[in-house]
Write a protein that binds this DNA or RNA. Structure first.
Ligand SMILES: [Zn+2]
Ligand SMILES: [Zn+2]
Ligand SMILES: [Zn+2]
Ligand SMILES: [Zn+2]
Lengths: 132, 132
DNA sequence: TAATTTTTGTTATAATATAACACTATGTAA
DNA sequence: TTACATAGTGTTATATTATAACAAAAATTA
C-alpha cells in the first residue's frame, strides 16, 4: 500500500530532519545537517526528497525551493496543497481548508484541461509581523 | 504612474522575447536569445526579469523556473495569478476566472494572516495530450 | 537459485540565481 | 546651471539549486 510505504535509511534520516523543523528546509541545509549521519552528497538528499514528495510525506514550497513536512494524515499524496507564507519572517504553514479544497478540486476551465493536481501559495504578513 | 512605466533598453529586449513566445521561457534560454542584441551576462537578464515581474508585464511560473508574458491588461501587478500547466507537453496558460479570483482574493484563514498576494498552479493534461 | 528492481555511493557537471563594484544615465531640487 | 539622489548598466566572480552517468550493493520476485 502506497501510504504505508517503508522508508529506506536515507529517506528516514532526511524525513526526520524535516519533521523536526518548524519551518521549511532547503536541500543544502539538509545536506549539511545529515553529513554527521553519513550522507555526503547532494544526490543522496535529492533522491530522498523526491521520494518523500512523491509519497506525500513532505511538500515542496515552490516559491522558496524548500521542503516542509506534511502534518495531515489525509494528504499523503501531493496533489492538493495550499500554503500560507509570511514575506517578512518566512514563516510557512500548510492550510487545510475543506471548503477551499473542494472549490479547487472541482475547478474546471473552458479549455478542456483535465486537472489532477494543484498548488496554491498565499503571501502576506503573519500576525506577529503585522504588529512590528 | 507605475502601470505606464517606461521600459529601459534591456527590459524592452527581454520583454520582447518573452512576448513573442507562446510558452514560458527560462532565464538562460532568454540569455542565449538576447546575446545577439548585446546582452551578455545572466545578471542583465535577471535584472530585467525582476523588474518586469514587479510591474506585472510578466509572471514567473514557480514550479518551472520560467517566465511568461501577461496578456491581461488588468493584472499589471503580480498579486493574483492562476496558471494551468500540462504535465505532458508543458503547455502553460494564465487563467483569468473572475469568480475564482474573488474567492481567493477574499480568502481568510484563522491564523490572523494578512494576505496581499497569491499564486495558484493547476497541473494536469491538456485537451491535446489527453487524446494521445 | 537467478533475474529484476530499487537504492546507494561517488564524481562530475548542469542549471538557476546573486554579490560586489565601478560606472552611466536620468530625474529632482536648489 | 550645479548638486544630489535614484535607477540602470556592464562586468567578473561566485553562490545556490539540481541532475547525469556509472558501478556496486541491497531488496524483491520468480
Ligand atoms: Zn500536506
Ligand atoms: Zn511573519
Ligand atoms: Zn497576468
Ligand atoms: Zn499537453
Amino acid at each position: 500500500m502506497q501510504n504505508q510505504q517503508v522508508l529506506t535509511k536515507n529517506q528516514k534520516i532526511v524525513l526526520d530532519i524535516i519533521e523536526k523543523s518548524s519551518q521549511p528546509l532547503k536541500a543544502y541545509s539538509i545536506l549539511f545537517d545529515v553529513k554527521k549521519k553519513g550522507i555526503n552528497a547532494p544526490l543522496q538528499v535529492y533522491r530522498a526528497l523526491d521520494k518523500l514528495v512523491e509519497i506525500g510525506k513532505i511538500h515542496k514550497i515552490e516559491s522558496r525551493n524548500a521542503f516542509i513536512a506534511c502534518k495531515n494524515s489525509k494528504c499523503q499524496i501531493t496533489k492538493a496543497t495550499v500554503f500560507s507564507i509570511c514575506e517578512n519572517c518566512e514563516d510557512v504553514k500548510e492550510i487545510h481548508d475543506h471548503k477551499l479544497s473542494e472549490h479547487l478540486k472541482h475547478y474546471k476551465d473552458n479549455k478542456g484541461m483535465k486537472y489532477s493536481k494543484y498548488n496554491l501559495e498565499f503571501f502576506g504578513l503573519c500576525k506577529k509581523c503585522i504588529k512590528n
